[in-house]
Amino acid sequence: MRDADLQPVIEARDLGLTFQTNDGPVHALKDVTLTINKGEFVSFIGPSGCGKTTFLRTIADLEQPTAGTLSVNAMTAHQARQARAYGYVFQAAGLYPWRTIGGNIRLPLEIMGFSKAEQAERVARVLELVELSGFEKKFPWQLSGGMQQRASIARALAFDADILLMDEPFGALDEIVRDRLNEELLSLWARTRKTIGFVTHSIPEAVYLSTRIVVMSPRPGRITDIIDSPLPRERPLEIRDSPEFIEIAHRVREGLRAGYDEANAS
């Protein structure tokens, strides 16, 4: 795996984040060391409180680490955010209700100062990418939850950042919609060659999507296992019944259980 042409995009070394609360310090992240290379699809999985979302937010410069170093695109996280290095997809679609779907996707483009012509062109392109062409003039409440989340992915793609950070984007959707969006996300990733960081609490989702799965555990939030997926990049949904898939899923489950036991024993 460690080829010479692998280009690190996100590098965290001994990263720590401690919140001071009334009940004493909470170690949200402790000694997290991880390198994510260009074009990878890395999932973070673990029980709640394991710091997977916090880690993603730290990469996005929405939280400040209290220890260690973090670089994004060879810059600090803060510089990377100012350079608009990533698109972020939240748990909820979070579309602005007073803007149409097109208007929502245009929002980052307006803020970043794209020309009107370029805005229109990009909106049309990403809408097609997430299969929402024709919904540009609709308001968010006119769309289903799954379509809203697709629109929010289009919004994160619109300004063409190399990195896509996704925080349980499909967590609130039912399983059928979720399967479909997983498939679409994979094909989108194959076409755009983006580097994706993906937080989830679903083992099948993590195994199905990722080239690498980072297993985390709580108290303190830390990485307990990193699993390279041997699955091919081309993944039909049926791959989830293959022995390889089941074996990786098993290993993820073992990792989660080990972390859970350890945290409870200490």
Partner: peptide
Amino acid sequence: MQLDLMKTYSASGGAVFFKLRLPTSM
């Protein structure tokens, strides 16, 4: 979350006011 979204765009204070706070307050 809506404010975080603006932060991920590294939006200026003016943009946050006119594109988020003001419409929300209508």
